[in-house]
Design a protein around this nucleic acid. Sequence first.
DNA 1: AATTCTGGCAACCGCCTTCCT
DNA 2: GAGGAAGGCGGTTGCCAGAAT
Length: 297
Amino acid sequence: MSTTMPTGTQRVCNPNEEEFELRRGPWTLEEDSLLIHYIACHGEGRWNLLAKCAGLKRTGKSCRLRWLNYLKPDIKRGNLTLQEQLLILELQSKWGNRWSKIAQHLPGRTDNEIKNYWRTRVQKQARQLKIESNSKRFLEAIRCIWMPRLLEKLEQTSSPSPHSSSTASTMESQNSKVTSLVPNQDNFASQESKLMDSENSISNICSTDSMRISEHPTSPGHAFGNTACNNSFLNDCYYVDISTYDMEGFNLAPMSAVGTQDISLLDCQMAENNWINDDMSSTLWGMDELWQFGKPE
DNA sequence: AATTCTGGCAACCGCCTTCCT
DNA sequence: GAGGAAGGCGGTTGCCAGAAT
């Protein structure tokens, strides 16, 4: 029994209590400080009671959300690092839209933030490619093209990225061990050229061993193994120290079901859209620079 | 300079699960 | 075991700032 008020408040009529206003919408500084102060003194949990005791005219849910997504001291601010983006791609392909679970592996990042990232950046690419997001084809593109690119970019920017300087310390340090990821750049450019050739499917790219550099000898989950790319592209070319990701190993099982037909379809789609050279280079996840280094001159 | 469009993100909603009585 | 409350989670909405026209 509530009525939305034009001012962003709800009038809640409770027979046992006096009528009170329930605020909605953006939080004010005053509300924030009330919440912070109350949690500092009494801890979090029992959110409905907390809201009442703290003098907040908000629902317990609203308080919880505000705290977890914005006010909590260890929340990271700023853009997602390359490592974080890579991790999100991998974990999403592994677990699907289990944002809270994924967020557990990105210290300081919230499920809401990761969800927003996925929707605004990643799914946008799917739309532009006319690929259904979360489809096999899209997953394939992520694995065979974008993740390797992220890895390569990661290697190139071994020094901390400018926009993540002070805020991404945990992941930054955790993932500084992403090692031996990328072969020489010339090869990558040539791979991209191949991609643009409609005669060559992604599977061609994936199956080349020209980019071979190292293979992790003991990796239990075998980061990029057993993919539709016939293992070669990722498995042979990249080594990610899984343990540093705290990822319980990459799981590429779903991709193993992807046949070359699908890949070829994707390839056709890509060729049709000229996606690497045009669309993608300027829009992929806001990481424009990611698409610059490997472009054929 | 004004208007429209777009992207990013905080916040809300509704459903489901877990906990408590 | 049943029922209700609280918490957790994923999807969606709406606002705002900056870009584009």
